[in-house]
């Protein structure tokens, strides 16, 4: 059993050091994909003990996750977890995220912010946005209604699932794309509750409400191509 964490990072020099060292103790290996950052993200991550791959040009979170996942497969991972590099994902949830795969009950496990555990300080506007996103997911994309968190970035994949799910959305739309692929596959999936930290600086740098429109647009362009 080899558990590898994949952390996509773009301009995270200030936060990635602690994030990597916290995740490292829970897994066998940490792969950071530095997505063309122009700050010290790569050096800081390496010093904190991660294996660092580099996209020469910024290609987006979805692309970086795919690259990191391919690398993890190459390195013989049996379980792959996706964790944000900005410290918003609390690594103390990792054992619970991995457990269903270890028990053979699921091929993919999603961390959900809406299963009982309250996320700290989530703004009201973000709640409304997530509700709208769920309606779009169900109606247009055909994502299972039992999936409670359309934009959760914390997930664990078995080796099989990682090989089978070849998402091609390079930017933020990969979350929806993965949920849709899983909904329409025969892979066993489940959700576990996770808590996300909404701190001032992670919110300032993170996704804005208008980015939701970009995601919708990217999914639509792909659907007519």
């Amino acid at each position: 059993m080899k558990i590898v964490a994949v952390m996509p990072a773009y301009h995270e020099a200030a936060r990635i050091g602690t994030a990597v060292s916290h995740v490292r103790v829970c897994v066998d290996e940490v792969i950071v994909v530095d997505d063309g950052s122009r700050d010290d993200t790569a050096e800081v991550a390496r010093e904190a003990g991660a294996r660092v791959l580099r996209h020469a040009v910024n290609r987006g979170q979805g692309a970086a996750l795919r690259t990191g996942t391919d690398a993890a497969l190459k390195r013989g991972a049996t379980i792959i977890v996706h964790v944000d590099a900005d410290g918003q994902h609390d690594p103390s949830f990792l054992p619970a995220l991995i457990a269903p795969i270890q028990r053979g009950e699921a091929a993919i496990v999603f961390g959900s912010r809406f299963l009982g555990v309250r996320s700290e300080g989530m703004p009201f506007a973000r709640r409304v946005l997530l509700f709208a996103a769920r309606q779009f997911s169900g109606l247009v994309l055909g994502i299972s209604r039992r999936m409670t968190d359309p934009q959760s970035g914390m997930r664990a994949l078995s080796r099989d699932a990682a090989m089978q799910l070849r998402w091609t959305q390079d930017r933020m739309a990969h979350c929806s794309e993965i949920l849709r692929m899983v909904s329409q596959s025969s892979l066993a999936w489940t959700e576990v509750p996770v808590q996300i930290r909404y701190t001032a600086d992670s919110l300032a740098k993170g996704q804005k409400a208008t980015d939701a429109l970009k995601i919708v647009w990217q999914l639509l362009v792909r659907s007519i191509s």
């Binding site: 994909v33 791959l53 580099r54 996209h55 020469a56 040009v57 290609r59 987006g60 692309a63 795919r66 690259t67 391919d70 690398a71 190459k74 390195r75 013989g76 390079d170």
Partner: peptide
């Protein structure tokens, strides 16, 4: 383009 960038990023990864 992403495939190209990915290919480059993965070229030194080994077992």
């Amino acid at each position: 383009f992403t495939e190209l960038v990915r290919h480059d990023a993965l070229k030194d990864v080994d077992r």
